[in-house]
Design a protein around this nucleic acid. Structure first.
Lengths: 125, 125
DNA sequence: CAGAATCCGAAAAGATACTG
DNA sequence: CAGTATCTTTTCGGATTCTG
């Protein structure tokens, strides 16, 4: 996801540069329901690799959307939570989910036939 | 943008599979304000190449979001318009724009320093 | 547990030139 | 005007191995 200059005036692109990508919205959705550990997120999103999850979380952290808390314990433990800025994304995520539900109903069967082998993300969003 | 199975239950991903990507939301935003010709879209989005614009429009057409009308004229003329399904994306796009505006205000200056060479899309969304 | 590091192939995107 | 075709570059993402 290309990050665009905020001077561009295209606010939509600013949003996409922050929460765009294949996994970020899913991650954010899970965090919307509360703080999660790395392993919890990994289990909740079966199709993401450790590497991808790490990268995406780091980018979200950099953008100020997600807060990462490391506990000095053995075994190690890391918590991820939304920042206030992150929580402010709720309307966007909700609008996306709602639209996706409607679209699935009207075009779902068609899409399924065409994409049998597609990735399946078992998130409960 | 990976297309996900609608059975996954993750409606957010369904939405992203349809209108995700760097250029689709920008294109959709422009079409929200009325029918546009290919060249109009190209001019409105200076950073997109002809090739990318064509590909994205084709995908949106396939998804039933955008309607393409070819006029048998010389010089050729092609119109792009949102379908009803496309117009139903308005709340999503609006939520994105609104969030982007807020984010730019609070984090904009910081982001700018970090991304001096970033792409600049002069869309008026 | 939660990652970091490295390697590698696939896929997306860009530049450029050409056409009905 | 509205694209295609082709080629190159860049990025994405998966597999694997290693570590505090």
């Amino acid at each position: 996801m290309k990050r665009l200059n905020s001077k561009s005036g295209c606010a939509v692109e600013v949003t996409l540069s922050v929460m765009g990508g294949t996994w970020k919205p899913i991650v954010l959705f899970h965090l919307l329901h509360g703080t999660k550990r790395f392993s919890e997120l990994a289990r909740a999103i079966p199709n993401v690799t450790q590497r991808m999850l790490t990268l995406q979380l780091r980018e979200l952290e950099e953008a100020g959307i997600v807060a990462r808390t490391v506990y000095a314990e053995v075994p190690p433990r890391v918590d991820y939570a939304l920042t206030d800025m992150g929580r402010s994304l709720e309307p966007v995520l909700t609008a996306m989910r709602d639209w996706g539900l409607g679209y699935s109903q009207t075009q779902g069967e068609e899409q399924e036939r065409l994409q049998v082998q597609s990735v399946q993300a078992r998130c409960v969003a």
